[in-house]
Amino acid sequence: MASIRLSPRRLSCAAACAELEGPGLGGMVVFAGRVRPDRSRVGRVAALDYDVHLAPAARALRDLARLAERRYGARRIVLWHRVGRVTTGEISVIVGAACPHRAEAFAAARFLIDELKATVPIWKAERGRPARRPRRPPSRERARGSG
């Protein structure tokens, strides 16, 4: 059973864990990816804009879930990705897998995030912080200590 979500709404690890609950599922792995304030060509990254081709992306996520069920015996799967602007520190993606044992759960979650990045039509663009206005040089009077 897979929960698939492409949405501008905030993502929650607690909600993902709740989706992965099920009888006999002894191993549950949740991976959350967050936006980092890296330095880049836009300056300090303030946000990422995620562009998604919705219908093909949803189909690709469903295919991925089916593959993980077949390959790793995952019985519950979460594949959630934000759409639109995500600011630094926020979660942009959550993948999760629940299996009877931990080894398969770890392998399935790793497979899901790696394949999501490589095969699902989602793109991100970095957005920087607005440049700070340069400080005004001190006036001659202020520099002399007048006033």
């Binding site: 990705h81 993606v93 995030i113 999501l116 990045k117 699902v120 039509p121 991100k124």
Partner: peptide, 10 residues
């Protein structure tokens, strides 16, 4: 007709 550059989600 859709143009898909290399993907980069996550």
């Amino acid at each position: 007709f859709a143009v898909h550059p290399p993907y980069g989600g996550g």
